[in-house]
Structures are given as C-alpha cells and as structure tokens.
Computed example of a mutant assay.
Amino acid sequence: MFSARGLAAVVAAFTAVVLPASPVRADDGFPFGFEMTLDTLPQPGSKRIPTLEIGDNGEAKLDLWCKRGTGQFSVAGNTVIFVPGQLQDQGCPPARAQADDDLVAALSEATTWRRRGDQVSFVGTRPLKFHLNTN
C-alpha cells in the first residue's frame, strides 16, 4: 500500500514520463484529430480549396485542388516532418495538378509548425497557413 506521499510520487513520475509522449490537445497544440482548410482562394474554374485531415496518430488525408491522397505527420515539439503517400489524380487540368504537387512539396519541406487559435502554420521554404474547421 502507498502512503499519500508515495502515491503523490508515483503520480508525479507517471505524469512526467507518460504525458510528454502523448499528443498535445491544448488550444495551441498540434491539431491531431482535426480537419483544416488551406488559407487560399480557389483555382480558376473551381470552387475547391485543399483540406488536410490529421488523425490522432499523425495519419493524414489530403483532399487537394485536383488530387487526393494520404501521408503521415511526425511531430516533436515545434518540429514537424510530413511524408506524403500516394496521390490519386482526379483528371484535372495540368495547372491544378501542378498546384497540388507544389502544395505537397511545400508540406514535405516544412520543418516547423505553430498554432494560434484556429490557425495552423507550417514553416519551410514556402510557409503554408491552414484554418481549423471548427464548425
């Protein structure tokens, strides 16, 4: 049986070891479990705007201007790594397909991220800004 002090020590040790390894869920934490929309205008001739859904374990679904696919996010502190999976071309014009490839490349080149409320930024060679879909 633990004394009150012993129990407090076990809880403190558990908190120090387990909680940092868990995904952060605070307002300013990485948006695991959320869908977000790129902060941009639609491409000419289309109403679509790219979205990104990040699962609880970093698995990602991308629904871009023209292509759809998957990927994986790895996060440590404010460092981020995105590894794209296979993308399926939906038969769009070359300019939209190229815009999708450029967006995936920019996500892949991002090295850090930050969140301010409902806005999430990925920072690399080309910064990307997304808004969380909170409705």
Rank of each mutant, 00 (worst) to 15 (best):
F2M: 05
F2C: 04
F2L: 07
A9H: 10
V10N: 01
V11M: 03
V11H: 02
A12W: 09
A13N: 03
F14P: 03
V17G: 03
V17N: 01
P23Q: 06
P23T: 10
V24G: 06
V24R: 00
A26C: 10
G29S: 05
F30D: 00
F30M: 02
P31L: 01
F32I: 05
F34E: 07
F34P: 02
E35T: 15
L38M: 10
T40P: 11
L41T: 15
Q43C: 06
G45L: 09
G45R: 06
S46D: 09
S46H: 03
K47I: 13
K47L: 06
R48A: 13
E53Q: 08
I54D: 01
G55Y: 07
D56H: 08
N57E: 10
N57A: 12
E59C: 02
E59V: 09
A60K: 04
K61N: 08
K67M: 09
G69S: 08
T70N: 03
T79H: 06
V80I: 12
I81C: 03
Q86V: 15
L87R: 10
L87E: 10
Q90A: 14
C92K: 05
P94M: 00
A95W: 02
R96Q: 15
Q98N: 13
D101E: 11
L103T: 11
E109C: 08
A110K: 02
T111D: 08
T112G: 07
W113F: 09
R114I: 14
R116N: 13
D118E: 09
D118P: 11
V120T: 14
V120W: 02
P127N: 11
H131Y: 13
H131W: 13
L132W: 03
N135C: 00
